[in-house]
């Protein structure tokens, strides 16, 4: 069992890293031939960094669009960020100071993450427009994330999992030593779903995470009159004519 999980984790991590890097490389390689920031847009590079920061940290555009999606979406993402940071304790020895510090918040974040996810799902099921645009995979992603969050919470609050053993398993994995994983149902489920998430990330809508940084409507500077913007294939036309 432990060996199986070890292999799955290696494989999933590989798929995740290679898949993600290759998507990012594609985005980076693809030219943006025209200036298309959604205006009003910042006129300086620094302004663009601020705009992106507001989008990534506060979900500014979503806030303007719809308070329900924003509050649930933001709650889910912010909680998840905390939860992930808290999980660093299973991969570091000794545990970094700031990870110890956020430990208590990380625990509650698991609960708020679940609330956010459920709020999003309720909307997806009950709002006619959103139901219309949803594919089966949209629902399944929510199921998967809800599964990860609830199995994690279960280990914390219901059953008891030997986290020390889990930790030594992962520390071992990182040094290519396959140790012993406690055989316990919530943990298996939790880890299995995480494996699925990692493996499927680069072929799914989760690509919105790297995608936002490459979105030309958000990351371009509004200075087309001041600076001539040229792309490779656009420029080529000039030498031909």
């Amino acid at each position: 069992m432990s060996v199986l999980f070890a292999i799955l984790f290696y494989l999933a991590t590989l798929l995740f890293v290679v898949g993600l890097l290759s998507r990012i490389a594609t985005y980076a390689r693809t030219p943006a031939p025209l200036k298309i920031p959604t205006t009003p847009a910042p006129t300086t590079q620094g302004g663009v960094v601020l705009r992106m920061a507001r989008e990534v940290v506060l979900f500014e555009s979503l806030f303007k669009a719809n308070l329900w999606i924003w509050s649930m979406g933001w709650l889910f993402h912010a909680s998840m960020a905390l939860v992930i940071m808290r999980h660093l304790r299973y991969f570091t020895d000794p545990v970094w100071g700031w990870v110890v510090l956020i430990q208590p918040f990380g625990l509650y974040a698991g609960i708020t993450m679940l609330i956010g996810l459920c709020g999003l799902w309720v909307r997806r099921i009950f709002v006619e427009r959103i139901r219309y645009i949803s594919t089966p995979s949209d629902h399944l992603w929510l199921v998967l994330l809800i599964g990860i969050a609830s199995s994690g919470l279960m280990m914390q609050f219901a059953t008891h999992t030997d986290v020390i053993a889990v930790k030594s398993f992962f520390i071992g994995l990182m040094g290519f030593n396959i140790g012993q994983l406690p055989a316990d149902a919530p943990l298996m489920l939790h880890l299995f779903l995480v494996v699925a998430l990692l493996a499927l990330f680069p072929v799914s809508k989760l690509l919105h995470a790297p995608g936002i940084f490459f979105s030309p409507t958000r990351n371009q500077t509004d200075n087309p009159r001041e600076k001539r913007h040229v792309s490779g294939w656009g420029k080529k036309m000039e030498s031909e004519s």
Partner: peptide, 24 residues
């Protein structure tokens, strides 16, 4: 077009079907 326009390449992948745009 997917190779020529970053907008098309990114926008095809990035949508999460959140529906924020659906009534706009």
């Amino acid at each position: 077009l997917l190779r020529k326009y970053r907008s098309v390449a990114v926008f095809m992948d990035a949508c999460v079907h959140c529906g924020a745009c659906s009534d706009k």
